[in-house]
Amino acid sequence: MSAQHIPTATIDPQAQPAIEMIDVHKWYGEFHVLRDINLNVKRGERIVICGPSGSGKSTMIRCINRLEEHQKGRIIVDGVELLDDLKRIDEVRREVGMVFQHFNLFPHLTILENCTLAPIWVKKMPRKEAEEVAMHYLTRVKIPEQANKYPGQLSGGQQQRVAIARSLCMSPKIMLFDEPTSALDPEMVKEVLDTMVGLADEGMTMLCVTHEMGFARQVADRVIFMDYGQIVEMNTPDEFFKNPQHERTRLFLSQILH
């Protein structure tokens, strides 16, 4: 099955898709990074995206909250099309949480301030309520006792869990993960993955760029393999790992699975 033939019939026509990418192209100068991306993400769907470095997987999910601009095609997130309108882009970003490879916490603010900043300033939530929400999510990622420390005082795994909590404080409908465990020491990968599994179990719509194939097997509804800016193969995890169709996918899997 190739990317161009998404079985649209399987998508429930009642439910509007969470994300729709239609014929999306992107160039960095002359370099064609994203080519003909077509993707429909249902609500509550968990998608894992893998591929060699430079294949455009990060660029693709960064287009969804407009950290990168696409030059051709349409991207519709939660019913809002991403155009040049700044107000709409902010609207989309409010609904879409993102977790980065290097956490991108704000080092000059405490953990609690990191988590309450956006609810207070973007959602105009009263400070007290925002702090309650923040403590709720910090408890959920199991670090409420670190609330008054600064990011630099935490381990990588803790920082990444704070980053997840910070996104959750905005009650997003969709979460994007851009290689969330790639910058972590091996001992800390599991604590972050456990948090993500918990999130997946609660029905969050998730797009996750990762090479953690165990995670893909455990939670993903679909696995996407990208190369040269294209979606090369997309399938359920079972089929994807057991029975890869495309030659490039087989080569990639043989190199990362031992």
Partner: peptide, 28 residues
């Protein structure tokens, strides 16, 4: 760049991003 991206991904607009995230750190 990650500081800008972190701020933008949370939906902060340009004045908020600059006054709350970027300038406090840059001035320091």
């Amino acid at each position: 760049k990650g500081q800008y991206e972190g701020a933008m991904s949370l939906g902060l607009n340009y004045p908020q991003m600059m006054s709350l995230i970027i300038l406090p750190q840059a001035l320091r």
